[in-house]
């Protein structure tokens, strides 16, 4: 196990554990704070993969933007912590069997798959490549994303209006 593996497992454990607590905790403020660690762990994994741009975006947008907004929303909402969140568990046996089977399937897939690998040195910076790709090969997708965001904005306005 080299140093990269150690760092990977560190971030993976941080991500996985905090995600587990986000789902299980009954206090919504705690859940929001645990989400901070989940996003942070994912950003760490991105750095490890050499995806510097995505890691920065993850930090700026998710941790810096969305999560802060979420926390503001939680804190500014009156009496939100005293509300009992209903997290009942129904049908625990079938669910456990189903999830167990699926997990086994996933582990089998992970173990036996020959993933496609490419032997190239990691580029020092990915931002330039990403920019060129977005405006060249994926120009249509990029433009479509613009429309997607416009539609999302209009949809949100429509929901918020009386």
């Amino acid at each position: 196990m080299n140093i990269y593996d150690a760092i990977f497992y560190l971030f993976a454990v941080v991500t996985g554990l905090s995600a587990f607590f986000v789902v299980t905790t009954r206090n919504i403020v705690y859940a929001a704070f645990f989400l901070l660690f989940t996003f942070f762990g994912v950003a760490g994994i991105y750095v490890l993969l050499g995806a510097d741009f995505i890691a920065i975006v993850q930090l700026i947008i998710y941790v810096g933007g969305i999560l802060i907004l979420l926390l503001f929303g939680v804190m500014l909402t009156n009496k939100i912590t005293s509300v009992q969140i209903k997290t009942g568990t129904l049908q625990i046996v079938p669910a456990a069997v189903g999830v167990g089977l699926f997990a086994g399937f996933l582990i089998a897939v992970l173990t036996y798959t020959e993933w496609k690998t490419v032997d190239t040195a990691l580029p020092l910076t990915t931002t330039e490549f990403l920019g060129v790709m977005l405006l060249q090969e994926y120009l249509v997708v990029f433009e479509l994303l613009g429309i997607l965001l416009l539609i999302a904005l209009i949809g949100a306005a429509s929901i918020a209006r009386r």
Binding site: Y138, V140, V141, L144, L145, I147, L148, I151, A152, G155, S158, I159
Partner: peptide
Amino acid sequence: ADLILIYISLELLSLSSYVLAGF
């Protein structure tokens, strides 16, 4: 014919229909 385009356009379709379903 490209999985990325398929995903994005499917999201565009879904996102609009979510709002319209509760219009």
